[in-house]
Structure formats: C-alpha cells, structure tokens
Computed example of a mutant assay.
Amino acid sequence: MLDRLRENLRVVFDRDPAARTVWEVVTCYPGFHALTLHIVAHGLWTRDCKWLARLVSHVGRFLTGIEVHPGATIGRRVFIDHGMGTVIGEHTVIGDDCTLYQGVTLGGLGLASKPGKRHPTLGQGVVVGAGAKVIGPIEIGEGAKIGPNAVVIKDVPAGAVMVANLARQVDKRDREREEKAEQLGFSAYGISSDMNDPVVKAIHGLLDHTVITDQKVEAILKKLEQLGVDCAEERAAGDRFDPGYLNKIVD
C-alpha cells in the first residue's frame, strides 16, 4: 500500500504543474484522498466486508466530492484532477496511468449486454476530459482521449480521440433525413449535423437530396397511377445502396 501511495503522490507532480510540495498534495488534493480511501474500501470489498467498504466509500465521497464504488478496479498511477462530481461505478475497470478530470461519469446500464458487467473498462493511459460521460459495459482502448462533455456509449479503439455529445432535438427536416437513413440502413445519428466536419455535412446534404428526390418520384408515380399506369414494378424496385460501407466511414 505504501508503494501505491508513493506512486499516487509522484503522479500528481508529473501531471499537475500547480502541485508544489508533498505536504500540499497530501492535505489539499481530493483526487489523492479519494484514491487513497478507495484502496482501503476496495480491500474491504474484496474481503466481503461490503457494508464497511461502502461506509469508507461514502466517507470519501463526503470529504472529496468524488464517488468511487468500492467494487471498482483502479490501476496504478491513476490521477484524478480536481475531481468534484466524478462518479465511478461498481464494475468500472480503470487501467494504469489514466487521467480523469472533474465531473466525469463512468456509469452503468441497468440492462447490461455483458452478464455481470454494467460499467466501462478503460485501457492504459486513457484521458477522460471534464464532464465526459462514458456509459455502459464498453471498452476504451489504450491511449484514447475522451473530450470534455463528450458522451460515449460505444467501444473506442486504441489511440482514438472522441468529441461531441449525442443528445439533440430534431426538427422536421432532421426527422425526414433520419427516416430515409433508417430505410437505407444507415445510422445517420452516429453523427451530428452541427459538427464542423465537411464529410458529415456532405453526407447530410446527400441524405437531404435523397429525401427530396424520393418525394418527387412518389408524386410522379401517383400521377401515373391516376392515369392508369401500373407502377407496381417500379415501387418494388429497391435502391442499390451499401449502408454498411457508409456507416463504416463515418463511425
């Protein structure tokens, strides 16, 4: 345990230029306090002293504003900077040399796709920015960076940089685009229309054009049917489109 404490002290000086003395870190750094108390709480948890482990965890939350479930597995040289409002769930696994900032949530899903696993796994050297939410039994690859306020609900490959969030209210044009994308099998809302990315804008432009074209074709077919023309074959013909490829290039 003393080795872990020394490592946790050294990592503060390595990653926080504001740290000046050991005494300052020991007395004034809530991230250091939270990790120290978690060592105790996790040890009790693994020894089946569940209530006492939760009590130690609760005291740590009261003192630091950082909530770490005693069941969480945290590697060596992890650094929690500031930390207020950070929540780390029971089945979370945090690899060595990770860095978390304030307001981070490593949360779980009630209906887990992996039995007994509801919270994320962070590989070595992952950085999670302030306010980011990493939700569910997903895996974040080694060296990945999660931007501030990002919402991550899918696996992240090693070294990737994840930015932006998922939640947005759609207007009529967005709903039409989404409906067309679903017909084509394309996950349009894996990307957001307000992202300043020319590829994203181009894809949304193509989807918008497709919606308008479909509306025009439908109007023409109705007119022809009113004139007695059988358009059943034209209606049955499907578009030749590879949604898998489009999903792959924008995910």
Score class of each variant (00 low, 15 high):
2 L>K: 14
3 D>L: 09
7 E>T: 04
9 L>D: 03
14 D>H: 08
15 R>Y: 13
18 A>W: 08
20 R>V: 15
23 W>P: 00
23 W>E: 15
24 E>T: 13
27 T>W: 09
27 T>A: 14
32 F>T: 04
32 F>L: 11
33 H>L: 12
35 L>A: 07
37 L>W: 03
37 L>E: 11
40 V>H: 10
41 A>L: 07
42 H>N: 14
44 L>I: 04
45 W>N: 04
51 W>D: 13
53 A>Q: 04
58 H>E: 15
59 V>H: 14
59 V>E: 13
59 V>M: 14
61 R>E: 12
64 T>M: 08
64 T>P: 04
65 G>N: 04
66 I>T: 03
67 E>Q: 10
68 V>P: 01
69 H>I: 06
70 P>G: 05
72 A>C: 08
74 I>D: 00
75 G>Q: 03
77 R>L: 09
78 V>L: 04
79 F>G: 01
80 I>Y: 00
82 H>R: 12
89 G>I: 00
90 E>D: 04
92 T>Y: 02
94 I>M: 01
97 D>H: 10
99 T>W: 03
105 T>P: 00
106 L>N: 04
106 L>H: 03
106 L>D: 01
119 H>Y: 02
121 T>C: 01
122 L>Y: 01
126 V>M: 05
132 A>P: 00
134 V>N: 02
134 V>T: 01
138 I>E: 03
139 E>V: 14
143 G>I: 09
147 G>F: 11
153 I>V: 15
153 I>M: 14
154 K>G: 10
155 D>C: 10
158 A>T: 14
159 G>Q: 11
159 G>D: 12
162 M>Q: 12
164 A>N: 14
164 A>C: 07
164 A>G: 08
168 R>D: 08
169 Q>G: 09
173 R>Y: 08
174 D>H: 10
175 R>C: 02
177 R>Q: 11
178 E>C: 04
187 S>H: 15
187 S>K: 13
191 I>T: 10
197 D>R: 13
199 V>A: 13
199 V>R: 14
200 V>P: 09
200 V>M: 06
203 I>G: 00
203 I>A: 12
206 L>R: 05
207 L>Y: 00
207 L>P: 00
208 D>R: 12
209 H>C: 05
212 I>G: 01
215 Q>I: 08
217 V>R: 08
221 L>C: 12
224 L>N: 09
226 Q>C: 09
227 L>R: 13
229 V>Q: 10
236 A>P: 03
236 A>I: 08
238 G>P: 15
238 G>S: 15
246 L>C: 05
250 V>R: 09
